[in-house]
Design a protein around this nucleic acid. Structure first.
Lengths: 226, 226
DNA sequence: GTGCAGATTTGCAGTCAGTGCACTAAACTG
DNA sequence: CAGTTTAGTGCACTGACTGCAAATCTGCAC
């Protein structure tokens, strides 16, 4: 790694750290790009040679998980079912905790829930990920999936899991509970893929044998939506 | 309806028409809000008392479909399965063609595919719709669904259908074919909900009895994703 | 019709994200 | 060291969007 590359990586990280600190202290919208650049000690104009927008700063390595999933699809075994491959690919992407650590982790989750602009960017990235994964899955099973049915399959899975997780994250008492998160993902997976998958999701919950989506614990009373 | 309301509705429509014409002629990004306001013959500042942003102009009545779906959930019959209610609700919302007609219809679809800012807004609206519908569905079945499992169910369905439709829309030869659209929706519905639903989607395709998501016609070869 | 209250329209000035351009400075190559 | 490439920066600009305050219009009561 050349000096140039090292410097660049250092500046990039300085921007992320500066932004994390400012977002946490002043809030996302009250923090300007000029603020971030000044804190990281670079010119404001230079910010845009590191990140295309303020939102993208919150999702560095946004394509890392997609790369992992695509790789997992490529390494399928010959007799694996499409849904099983998808399950394995997305589990692998999810187990990669590279973007779940660091000063941005909790901040990203909070801002994604609270700030519309951030949520919009997150949804866009998710959408593009879905598209790419569906394309690779369809290519992997040319005689079993069309592009459309692959997109439906991936959409069902991703939609179920993100819907479940986003709802769970709104519950202050369970949002930080790894067991609750794992169980929700497991249930969402069953809802979306169970009839098609032959193997279980890694980290299976105690309710593995239960097919119904009836609640097994007293969930919080629905408050409709605010 | 008072004079005031009539005037306001007229101005609102004039803005939509002006924007549709300008977007079609000059493109979305090349059209400024000042352009739109000038064409509709109002002050630029006034634009923002009609629409909160340029993107929202493309989605007037964005909550209409949600209202229809929520109403359908409210009018469930006592013995209806949750998935059946969801299916009926979303079919009803989809059959409502109020926002599928007018000068904005085709334009909205094209711009949603082509312009990132528009796609971002569309995804946000979709996300909020999902949330609201899931909340009502969970409230309708307090002892069978938690908020989380309802969100997973809705997410699976919406994710499958939007994934399928978005992919279909990228195929120039089939994007305008109502039969292809209906079939894709039917297949996506089966992938997402089949094990849970007891009744079929209205407007069922000829393949109703077929469970596999294997292609029945030679789909276009996947080109991965650009 | 007169007049008041509330809503609408509008201009103005300002903030902020983001871009194109031209120029300087630094790092790599031989 | 000389030449090439790439990064950093200031400047001027566009365009979305906001707050404010003045002007205008509508609804309604009298």
């Amino acid at each position: 790694m050349s000096l140039r590359d090292r410097k660049r990586a250092r500046t990039r990280q300085a921007l992320i750290d500066a932004a994390a600190e400012l977002f946490a202290r002043k809030g996302y919208e009250a923090t300007t790009i000029a603020d971030i650049a000044a804190t990281a000690d670079i010119g404001a104009r230079t910010f845009f040679s590191y990140f295309p927008s303020k939102e993208d700063l919150l999702f560095p390595e946004g394509d890392r998980r997609v790369r992992i999933a695509v790789e997992a699809i490529a390494h399928r075994s010959p007799d694996e079912e499409p849904a099983d491959v998808l399950l394995r690919a997305l589990s692998a992407a999810n187990d990669d905790s590279a973007d779940l650590t660091g000063p941005l982790a909790a901040l990203r989750i909070r801002l994604t829930m609270e700030v519309p602009a951030v949520r919009g960017r997150a949804l866009q990235l998710l959408w593009e990920s879905q598209r790419e994964i569906a394309g690779h899955l369809a290519a992997a099973y040319p005689d079993r999936l069309t592009e459309v049915s692959a997109a439906a399959l991936v959409g069902a899975f991703v939609g179920a899991v993100t819907g479940a997780l986003a709802t769970l994250m709104r519950d202050p008492t369970r949002r930080a509970d790894p067991a609750a998160i794992r169980e929700s993902m497991q249930r969402a997976t069953e809802i979306a893929l169970r009839p098609w998958a032959s193997q279980k999701c890694p980290g299976v919950s105690p309710h593995a044998g239960q097919v119904s989506y009836s609640p097994s614990h007293g969930g919080t009373k629905p408050s409709s939506s605010g």
